[in-house]
Amino acid sequence: MDMNYVISYVLRIGVVASVLLVSAGFILLFVNNGSNGLALSQIASANSGINSSIFTVPAIIGGIFAYQGIDFILLGLIVLMATPVTRVFFSIFAFLYNKNWIYAVITLIVFIDLMIAVFVVPSLLVR
C-alpha cells in the first residue's frame, strides 16, 4: 500500500470539502444578508461576541438543513479540523499493515493526544 498516496488523497478530499462548504456559507450569508437570526453587520463584527463558543455541533448540523450561512461556514471549518485527525487515524492502520509496530504505537499515541484535545479538554472547560 502506498501510504504517501493515501495520505495525499485524504488531505485533498478534506480540504476541497471544506472550501466548498465555506464558500456555500458565504454565498448564503451575503445573499440572505445574515444568518441564524443575526444581521450581517453583527456577524462581521469582532466585538459582537459572535464566535465558535456559542455554536454546538448538533445545532450546526440542524442549521445546514435550514440553509444558514454561518452553519455552513462552521461545518466547513470542522471538516478542515477533522482532516489531519482522519489522516492520523488511517496512518495507524497503514503502519500495522506494513508491520511497522513501533510506528503503529507512535501513531496511536498521537491519535490519543488528539482525542484528549478534541473531547476531554473541551468537556472539562465547559463544565
Partner: peptide, 19 residues
C-alpha cells in the same frame, strides 16, 4: 488541530474573520 479544538470551546474562532 490540537490547539484549534480547545480554541473552539474557548470561543477564539470568529467565523466571519477566520473563514
Amino acid at each position: 488541530v490540537t490547539g484549534s479544538a480547545i480554541y473552539w470551546t474557548l470561543g477564539y474562532i470568529q467565523p466571519f474573520i477566520a473563514a
